Computed example of a mutant assay.
Amino acid sequence: MTASIAAPLDVSRETRERLNCFADLLLRWTARINLISPRDVPHLWPRHIEDCLQLVPYVERGARITDLGSGGGFPGLILAIAADADVTMVESDHRKAAFLREAGRATGCRSRVIVDRIENVLLDPAPIVTARALAPLPRLLDWTYPLLAPDGYALFLKGKQAPDELTDATPGWHMSVDQITSRTPGGLILKISDLRRV
């Protein structure tokens, strides 16, 4: 395991405009469905958008990604916009899925939405699997494994419980883990590769 610090955030003017379009749409929809917490509305950019932008340096432009539990588009739509990634988002909530489709259309990004529970999804394994604040790591790895290409890697945005979750996951998995200190206080980015069941 190695530790490093997430790279500085820097996006083009065009990307910033598309992210603004996404943010405006998200705030309009949040008034009707729970995409983000009401207390997070004033902090949308630092708490959600910039948090997800930290993953961009670890994603090759145009990469194919499967994003689990996409919710309000974090990090799936952010990566589709900022890394020009080809993102398949898995979201079981029909209202959130409708938002994801509309936001993908409005921002002109390459994205599609599968409305189903993660454990039911059958997809070609992707080079990258992403998730943010979705589930404890042992469960997340169970969901990720069949959807991740053998030579691929997962990027998980986690909170302060990440070290404990890694300890809990270790008995069941062989994996290489890079722990990247998040710009978000108390956060950690886990980059997991060489994932195999023990």
Rank of each mutant, 00 (worst) to 15 (best):
A3R: 15
S4P: 02
A6E: 05
P8E: 03
V11W: 10
S12Y: 01
E14M: 09
R16Y: 12
R16G: 13
R18E: 13
C21L: 14
D24G: 15
L25Y: 04
L25H: 07
R28W: 01
R28S: 13
R28M: 07
R28G: 07
R28H: 08
R28E: 15
A31E: 13
I33W: 01
N34K: 12
S37I: 04
P38S: 00
D40C: 00
D40T: 00
V41D: 00
L44S: 08
P46M: 05
R47F: 01
H48S: 02
I49N: 05
V56W: 06
Y58D: 02
G62V: 00
G62E: 00
R64I: 13
D67C: 09
D67P: 10
G69A: 08
G69N: 06
G71F: 01
G72Y: 01
G73A: 01
G73D: 01
G76K: 09
G76T: 09
L77Q: 11
L77H: 04
A82F: 01
A83G: 05
D84E: 15
V90N: 05
E91D: 06
R95H: 10
K96D: 05
L100I: 05
E102N: 11
A103K: 08
G104L: 09
G104I: 08
R105V: 07
C109L: 03
R110M: 08
S111L: 08
R112I: 02
R117M: 03
I118C: 08
N120W: 08
D124Y: 02
A126S: 14
I128Y: 10
V129F: 12
A135H: 04
A135K: 05
L137K: 05
D142L: 13
W143A: 10
Y145R: 14
Y145V: 13
L148N: 04
A149N: 12
P150V: 09
P150E: 14
Y153D: 06
L157K: 08
G159P: 06
K160W: 13
E165Y: 04
L166C: 02
P171E: 13
P171N: 13
H174D: 14
H174C: 14
D178K: 03
D178C: 00
I180V: 15
T181L: 14
R183T: 04
T184H: 11
L188R: 12
K191I: 00
K191S: 02
K191R: 15
D194T: 04
L195G: 02
R197H: 07
